[in-house]
Simulated scan of single mutants.
Amino acid sequence: MAKDHATDDLNAVRRNVDTANGLPNEHYTDPATFDAEAKAVLHSSWAGLAVGADVPENGDAKPMEFLGIPLLLLRDKDGDVRVFQNICRHRGMILVDAARKIEGAIRCPYHSWCYSTKGALVSTPHVGGAGHNTHDAIVKEDLGLIEVRSHIWRDVVFINLDGQAEPFEVVNADLIARWHENTAPLYHGGDDSAFALDVQCNWKLAVENFAESYHLPWIHPGLNSYSRLEDHYNIEKPIANTSSGAFSGQGTLVYRQLTAEDGTTFPDFEGLSDKWNEGAEYICLYPNVLLAAQREHAYAIILEPIARDRTIEHVHLYYASPQTDDDLRMRNTAQWKEIFEEDISVVEGMQRGRAAPGFDGGRFSPAMDGPTHCFHDWVAAKMGATADG
Results as ranks from 00 to 15, higher is better:
344 I>A: 00
352 R>V: 10
365 S>A: 13
363 R>W: 08
345 S>E: 07
354 R>S: 14
340 F>H: 07
371 P>V: 07
362 G>W: 09
356 A>H: 09
352 R>E: 04
374 C>D: 09
369 D>H: 14
375 F>R: 00
345 S>D: 04
375 F>P: 00
357 P>R: 10
374 C>Y: 03
360 D>G: 08
358 G>Q: 10
372 T>L: 11
374 C>F: 03
347 V>S: 02
357 P>Y: 10
370 G>H: 02
357 P>M: 06
341 E>A: 06
345 S>C: 02
375 F>G: 03
357 P>E: 13
340 F>Q: 02
369 D>P: 02
362 G>T: 08
349 G>E: 08
365 S>T: 09
356 A>V: 14
351 Q>L: 04
356 A>G: 10
376 H>D: 14
346 V>S: 05
341 E>R: 08
365 S>E: 11
353 G>R: 07
343 D>G: 12
363 R>F: 13
373 H>G: 02
374 C>Q: 04
344 I>M: 05
373 H>I: 05
342 E>W: 01
366 P>A: 12
362 G>A: 11
365 S>L: 12
340 F>K: 02
369 D>S: 13
355 A>Q: 15
376 H>M: 07
347 V>Y: 01
353 G>M: 07
374 C>H: 01
375 F>H: 08
360 D>F: 04
357 P>W: 12
371 P>I: 04
358 G>W: 07
349 G>S: 10
351 Q>M: 10
342 E>G: 00
340 F>V: 01
366 P>G: 10
342 E>I: 01
373 H>K: 02
356 A>T: 13
350 M>P: 00
367 A>H: 13
372 T>F: 01
352 R>Q: 11
352 R>G: 01
343 D>H: 09
343 D>C: 10
362 G>C: 08
353 G>P: 10
360 D>R: 10
352 R>M: 13
364 F>M: 07
364 F>E: 02
368 M>T: 05
348 E>A: 03
354 R>N: 04
354 R>C: 03
365 S>W: 13
349 G>N: 12
350 M>A: 09
371 P>D: 09
358 G>R: 03
345 S>L: 05
349 G>K: 06
346 V>R: 00
348 E>S: 08
358 G>E: 06
375 F>T: 01
372 T>V: 15
371 P>R: 01
376 H>G: 05
352 R>L: 14
360 D>H: 08
346 V>K: 01
367 A>R: 14
368 M>H: 12
350 M>T: 01
349 G>C: 06
367 A>Q: 15
355 A>M: 11
371 P>C: 10
344 I>Q: 01
355 A>F: 13
376 H>V: 03
362 G>R: 06
352 R>D: 05
376 H>Q: 09
348 E>Q: 15
348 E>Y: 08
349 G>Y: 04
372 T>A: 14
365 S>C: 13
340 F>S: 00
374 C>W: 00
351 Q>H: 09
366 P>F: 11
375 F>E: 03
354 R>W: 01
352 R>I: 12
340 F>M: 13
356 A>D: 11
355 A>E: 15
354 R>Y: 05
344 I>S: 03
340 F>L: 15
376 H>C: 14
363 R>G: 07
358 G>K: 05
